[in-house]
Every structure is written in C-alpha cells, then in structure tokens.
Amino acid sequence: MSTLFILNQPELLDDCITVMQPDDALLLIENAVVIATKSSTTQYKMFVLKDDLIARGLFESIHDQSTAIDFSKFVELTLAYDKSVSWL
C-alpha cells in the first residue's frame, strides 16, 4: 500500500523519513514548506502546498525537487494514495 505522509513541522522530517517506503510520497504543509527551499537527499516524491509557500514569501525559492500543489491537488493526492498519515 502506498502512503502520503503529510508533514507540518520541519523538525520532524528525519523522523518521518525513517518510516517511508519507496512508493510513498511526502506532502509539506504549513511550517514544513521551508524544507522545499533546500535541495534534499531524499529519494521520495515531494509535494508542497502552494498557499503555504506564498504566505511565507517562499514561492520563488522552491527547489525543483518539489512540486507545488493547490488544495484541489491536495485532495486528489489523498485519493491517489492508499492512505494519508499526518506525521505529528
């Protein structure tokens, strides 16, 4: 089963990654969008919530490893993956 991991606190990234499988994806929301401004060594597909980037003045700073998405796509992702796990 594939899982969409939803992360809202950047400091929990390392912890979250320890439980991810190759087909899983990471969705960065709220404060965790700052992660998307740096290049990362993770091999996982990374999505980032566009409004949370814009709100923080970071939309232009997003690294090309991540895909910015709107709320419509957010809903679609929760359907595309077997389940969503908010890593709190």
């Binding site: 089963m1 899982t3 320890t18 439980v19 991810m20 499988q21 389940k83 796990v85 890593w87 709190l88």
Partner: peptide
Amino acid sequence: SQDVVKHQIASSDFVIGL
C-alpha cells in the same frame, strides 16, 4: 527493527499519531 515498523505502518488501513 525499523523495517518491521515500516511494514506495520505500510500495511495498516489507518495510522494515527497526535
């Protein structure tokens, strides 16, 4: 091991943390 934890999370229908 962490691999078992990974597997448990992957194979459950719902995963909840607070």
